[in-house]
Structure formats: structure tokens, C-alpha cells
Amino acid sequence: MNDEELVRRIHRELADSYDEELELEIEDRTIEELAEGVDARSEQDKEDRRLYFRELFRLQAELVKLQDWVVATGHKVVILFEGRDAAGKGGVIKRITQRLNPRVCRVAALPAPNDRERTQWYFQRYISHLPAAGEIVLFDRSWYNRAGVERVMGFCTDDQYEEFFRSAPEFERMLARSGIQLIKYWFSITDEEQHMRFLSRIHDPLKQWKLSPMDLESRRRWEDYTKAKEIMLERTHIPEAPWWVVQAVDKKKARLNCIHHLLGQMPYGEVEHSPISLPERVRHDDYFRREVSSEIVVPEVY
């Protein structure tokens, strides 16, 4: 990739990053307006964005139906999102949860274990985040940290690493036997694409916080992470909880493909709801609304 192409792709990445905010404005904008974007684009780019938004909103409507079915049937779902830094895991998680009830569909993004957690059974701190009936839990990274970052960065011993591969398939079979459906996604990007996304984050003040020292070190150890990923997929791909690889170089296509695939993993259907009617407000003659003190009113700067 030459410098001119790299700059063009970084600019496009920055422009695409604002699409998330535009997606939330669908009630106020048409797809045609959204397709115009934040900068000048070719007609093909605009058509691609129109298709993206049309499909995204259609799939999100299906996710709402899926949510209703999960609640109605008491289904329990765990979805793991794994992949390299900047692979797009957070982006698809946002699109999945964007229009769902956070009491039904929630995200678990655990920090590094503390001193006490390091002495626990490895899977113990994840268990409290597992779903009850009628819940969906999305893990933004998961117990597979041990097979990836912990292995590559030397945060676990060889014995702990091997014990993980003995335990993980049994742990996941136990989840399946208990009625929890486990779906595992690996987001795959190229060396070149990660390089470009990291540069984009460096040049975007709103995203620089996403680049931790660990992320930068992972860039240097690309090949070590590749080897660890290959071993992980080989040793933990089981019938009860297979791995699914999402081609994620194109972020928008990755989001659509992942959500489409996710919807196909459950036999959900339309759930009948009772008609909703707004009741009349009860009024009392002795009720008077008190004035709010101006001292506690937020100033209307805008």
C-alpha cells in the first residue's frame, strides 16, 4: 500500500466511524440522507451505504423478534466475540445491542483479573455473568484470553495453558448440557488492515483511548498471535460449541454477515403481543404542580 492509498483509507476509516452516530438518527433521517454521508463520495459508495443501512435496520428488526422469542421461551444464550485488536468486535456488539432491551441482552467485558481472581479456578469469574432464562449475554473477549493474550504475553505458565485446553471443551459441554447455547465468533483481519486501523486510531483524538500499550505490543507480536489463534481454533472447536470465523476486513459487511449468521443459529419466530392501549391519565382537582427552583435547573446553553 503506497502513502497516498494509506492516507485515503485512513480518511475513509475516519468518515465511516461517524456512521454509528448517524445510525441512531434513523427516526429523523431517511436512508437517502444517511447515504450522503459526511463527505463527498462516489455514487457506488453511496449505493453501498444505502444497502448497508437498509440491511442493518432490517436485521436489527429481526434481532428484536429474536429477543422476544428468547424471553418467551426462556432460552439462554452466550455469544463470544474474539479476534485481534481493532478487528471490529466492539462495532458488531454495538449494532446487536443498539435497539435491544439491556435487561435482556447485556454485554460482559471483564477487566484484567485482580489478585484474588488470579487465585480462583480460571473460569470462576466468568460464571456470574452467565445468563438466566430469557437472557442473552455477549462476551467482549472471554475465557479465551488464556489461549490468546495470556499465552503470547507470558501471563500464564505452560501448565496453566495446557490445563485450559483440557478444561475449556469440558466447561463448554457443561454449559450446553445445562441448556445454555454457546456461539463463538472469531473476527479475522489482515496484517495490513490492522496496521491501517491502528494508524486511524492514532490520528483520531476520539479513539486514541482505544490504543493501550498492550494493543501496541500485540501489533509487534502479530505472528505469535497468529500461532496462538490457530492452536486455539484447532483445540476448542467442538460440536457443542463450534467456532465461526467472520471475515472482518470490511467492517460493514462483517457486521451484517455476523448478525445474519447469528439470527440463523436459533429457531426464533414471531411472538404474539397483546394490543397496547394508552390509559387515560387520572386527574384530581386538588392537584397542583409545583414550580421547580431555578437554582437546580440545568442552564439551557443550547
Rank of each mutant, 00 (worst) to 15 (best):
D3P: 13
D3V: 15
V7F: 11
A15C: 13
D16G: 12
E23P: 13
E25D: 15
E27D: 10
E33K: 14
E36C: 09
D39N: 15
A40H: 10
A40S: 10
S42I: 02
R49M: 14
E55P: 00
R58C: 00
E62G: 01
L66W: 06
L66V: 03
D68W: 15
D68G: 11
D68R: 11
A72Q: 11
T73Q: 05
H75G: 12
K76S: 04
K76D: 02
V77I: 15
I79D: 09
I79Q: 08
G83V: 06
A86I: 06
G91T: 06
V92Q: 04
Q98K: 11
P102L: 03
V104S: 06
C105A: 14
A108I: 02
A109K: 03
P111F: 01
N114V: 05
E117N: 03
Q120G: 06
Y122K: 04
R125W: 01
Y126H: 01
Y126N: 02
L130I: 05
A132E: 11
A133E: 12
E135M: 08
R146K: 03
R146Q: 03
G148K: 06
V149F: 04
E150D: 07
V152A: 07
M153N: 10
G154W: 01
C156M: 01
D159W: 05
P169M: 02
P169K: 01
F171S: 03
E172L: 07
R173W: 02
Q181E: 12
L182D: 07
I183L: 09
I183M: 08
Y185D: 06
W186G: 01
W186H: 00
T190F: 06
Q194L: 08
R197L: 11
F198K: 03
D204W: 00
P205S: 05
L206K: 13
Q208G: 06
Q208C: 08
L216A: 08
L216F: 05
R220F: 01
D224L: 08
T226G: 12
R235A: 05
T236M: 00
P239Q: 07
P239M: 04
P242K: 04
W243F: 02
A248K: 08
V249Q: 12
K251M: 04
K252D: 08
R255F: 01
L256M: 01
G264Q: 14
M266Q: 09
P267Q: 10
Y268A: 05
G269K: 09
E272C: 12
E272N: 10
S274C: 14
I276G: 09
I276T: 15
V282R: 11
R283S: 13
H284D: 10
H284N: 12
E291C: 09
V292W: 11
S293A: 15
S294D: 15
S294E: 15
E300A: 15
